[in-house]
Write a protein that binds this DNA or RNA. Sequence first.
DNA 1: GATATCATTTACCATATGGTAAAAAGCGAT
DNA 2: ATCGCTTTTTACCATATGGTAAATGATATC
Lengths: 189, 189
Amino acid sequence: MKPFIDYILQFGNLNQQQTDLIMSKAKMFELHKDEYFSEAGKIPRQVGFLLEGVVRFCYYNNKGQEITHHFIEENNFVSDQEKFEAQVAASEYIQAVTDCRLLVFSKKDWDAIGNTIVGWDAITGLILKNCLLKTIERRSPLVSEDATTRYLSFVENFPNLMNRVPLSYIASYLGITQQSLSRIRKNIL
Amino acid sequence: MKPFIDYILQFGNLNQQQTDLIMSKAKMFELHKDEYFSEAGKIPRQVGFLLEGVVRFCYYNNKGQEITHHFIEENNFVSDQEKFEAQVAASEYIQAVTDCRLLVFSKKDWDAIGNTIVGWDAITGLILKNCLLKTIERRSPLVSEDATTRYLSFVENFPNLMNRVPLSYIASYLGITQQSLSRIRKNIL
DNA sequence: GATATCATTTACCATATGGTAAAAAGCGAT
DNA sequence: ATCGCTTTTTACCATATGGTAAATGATATC
């Protein structure tokens, strides 16, 4: 629990009573490799906080190719937050890349926290804003740089992911084929 | 003024007195083609709302190429909001693509509004979140699709911009050269 | 209306990346 | 250790895009 509370406290102050309330609503949840946390076309039923493991967001593009467009590491929220808040169907999959341990909150419990703790919405709003900004920043070089530079920027952004995530996921994240990525890796050495 | 107030009211309720306060702080501002609204390395001094014209966000990449990574049309905010709020140096330029008319707010006036109107922060937070989500959604195909598909998605997202914006800006937005874009345009016909 | 300036198109060749396929390497289960 | 399955690497050729350069077309200025 501690990493979760520490994470939240970066974005606002909460007293003991408030963190106790939050913790009382959290449920431990295990997700095995390749299982989905939520799926495209379905309403996301819970918000998660990743304690252990790696998760990816992915969707299918025009040509039916599966595109990974986001990775999430330990100590970050796992949620299609916009769709979760509005309780509408998601447009992408959230899938475990490795076995994962998460804290999860149902919509009911999440709302209960929001209705009880003044300032909770401000905190979660801040967190989401931060995540979105980081996502945009990480993805910018994926448009404007060549493939090698893109890969290097990925390594910089996710130094620990290189060996925990299949090559093919990274390749689609970078917008190249896995053959190209394999070639690039070789050239870098 | 009306388009501005209408825009804001989409994201929350304000009474007459509150909108009057907001309007009293707004200053009309003209920005000529190619002039900068704010610059990389400098602290953004104001938030703008674009009444007329087109604006772009751009920066220089690794190779020194100028990259356009965002366009803004009429009736949208023009601001590097994160950097404006924190009053720290921006990392990119905001430049007029055409002659522009804006409403602008100084940091002092913007803060004054926030301190007076309860709920203002929630409204502006929502607006920013929305803009960030839209940005991510628009930029996704720019990583995973081929150049022709990327151009078509641009046309879909910005149907009015095609003829108001130099080809070279669009090309760098799409992550291709202007020669390639010219070729693609020809092939589409 | 002529000229200069800037934006766009076209052409040509070079090169990075894609697509298909096969080989090699890693990994688990028996 | 052996087998089967998955992931990664390598090879080959095809193709889209990049880079350089010149030609054409638009726009503004005088």
